[in-house]
Write a protein that binds this DNA or RNA. Structure first.
Length: 401
DNA sequence: ATAGGGTTAATT
DNA sequence: AATTAACCCTAT
């Protein structure tokens, strides 16, 4: 797996909140192994998984797994284990046990099984391996829970307490801390470094290098690309306040190129059959159809919210990837928002006839929701995976005719 | 997001 | 040439 793939994956994990791109799809598509590299990527994905399970409202033994994995990764990174991490683990373990304390008598249900599985085996293993997650708090819980087997009063007290809330609070705190500790993604860091360098070069050579702007003066913002990271470029100067966002624009555009490309590979709904005029030799077949890439907001961090213009043709952006081999992904067709040429639809979506199932689902949908095509589509996402809301509307128009 | 007019390609 | 299904474009 190329390093740039890892970076892009990491970047996506950190900033994407596009529901159409499932992280599990992403990670399996990129297949990274067990090696000690790309730690940031792995940490990011574990955090994302934790985040996901929290939004699903599940605090279970899978959460314990994730916390243990996270500890290993952080140790490889030579980070310290934070208090929130320990507390989150401790309270999650307690919550996992509490879940089996529904019978009134401790010996009735699966409580003793859970005690054995979680506290004796799992945490026993942690103790053996000298894990930092074994805190005093955890040991106290272990003692209390084991005592509860024989002490009905203790059992009742624990049984009625709200452990879950505390566990979730600590998990949230842990997530917040860890995302913060990660800082900029590798991709962003390199992009920053590159455009800084370019800015420096441009300032040395005078004007000249400026590639022209699109016909419609682009108005793009690039969010917080300026956050600092490891001082690898210490000697590069800091003093160029003039034209501060020029480099930002170019870097953002490069990032966006990558994101569009990789998103097309990952997101099946933007993938189509092989284009006959495809001039590239890469193995993946991706129909260039930028207008179809659905970009839902990226939660405040808008690195890539750039209304594109047609000016980024090959020759003008020469310096961009100089000296670096662009990975095997093909170049996306530039989004064309030029006022002169309003139609920029290189290909028409291949015609696909409606199946009886789809028609039936549409009929039922209209019956239930009326002409709320969006609702109908959302009600049966699987059936209508290949249909847009407009498709539904058009089909209905045909049906009632 | 939806409605409605327009286009494309297949079928008659 | 007319009809039709699916798809595209744009104004609201």
């Amino acid at each position: 797996m190329e390093i740039i793939d890892k970076w892009v994956a990491e970047f996506l994990i950190r900033c994407q909140h596009n529901p159409r791109v499932s992280p599990t799809n992403l990670l399996s598509a990129l297949r990274f192994g067990d090696s000690g590299d790309c730690l940031k990527l792995k940490v990011s994905s574990v955090l994302l998984d934790l985040s996901d399970s929290l939004t699903r409202g599940s605090v279970d033994e899978g959460t314990l797994d994730l916390l243990e994995i996270l500890e290993k990764l952080l140790l490889q990174q030579c980070s310290v284990i934070t208090e929130s991490h320990k507390s989150a683990y401790c309270w999650t373990a307690a919550e996992c046990t509490l879940r089996f304390m529904w019978p009134l008598d401790p010996l009735d249900g699966l409580f003793t099984d859970a005690l054995e599985r979680i506290w004796t085996k799992r945490i026993g293993f942690l103790k053996e391996s000298g894990s930092g997650l074994v805190s005093d708090e955890l040991l106290k819980w272990e003692a209390d829970l084991k005592k509860a087997v024989e002490d009905p009063e203790m059992y009742q007290r624990i049984r009625e307490s709200n452990i879950r809330y505390t566990a979730i609070s600590f998990l949230n705190q842990l997530l917040k801390e860890q995302w913060g500790l990660l800082g900029s993604s590798s991709l962003e860091s390199v992009a920053q470094r590159r455009f800084r360098k370019r800015k420096a070069e441009n300032n040395v050579e005078g004007d000249g290098v400026r590639s022209r702007e699109g016909p419609n003066g682009v108005d793009e913002r690039t969010g917080r690309m300026e956050t600092e990271e490891e001082g690898t470029m210490g000697s590069q100067e800091q003093k160029h306040e003039s034209s501060p966002d020029k480099g930002d624009k170019m870097a953002a555009r490069e990032l966006k190129d990558y994101l569009l490309e990789i998103q097309r590979q990952i997101d099946p709904s933007t993938r189509q059959v092989q284009e006959p005029n495809d001039a590239f030799d890469h193995s993946v077949n991706v129909t260039p159809q930028p207008s179809r890439v659905n970009r839902t907001g990226t939660s405040g961090q808008d690195h890539i919210e750039t209304p594109d213009n047609a000016s980024e043709k090959g020759s003008s952006s020469q310096g961009t990837w100089s000296g670096r081999v662009r990975p095997r992904l093909s170049s996306p067709v530039p989004l064309n928002v030029s006022p002169l040429k309003k139609t920029n639809s290189p290909v028409r979506r291949p015609k696909k006839f409606w199946t009886p199932e789809e028609v039936e689902a549409l009929r039922a949908g209209v019956k239930e929701y009326g002409k709320s095509w969006k609702d109908i589509k959302n009600a049966n996402p699987a059936v209508f995976a290949e249909r847009t809301e407009v498709d539904l509307k058009d089909k209905w128009r045909n049906l009632v005719r």
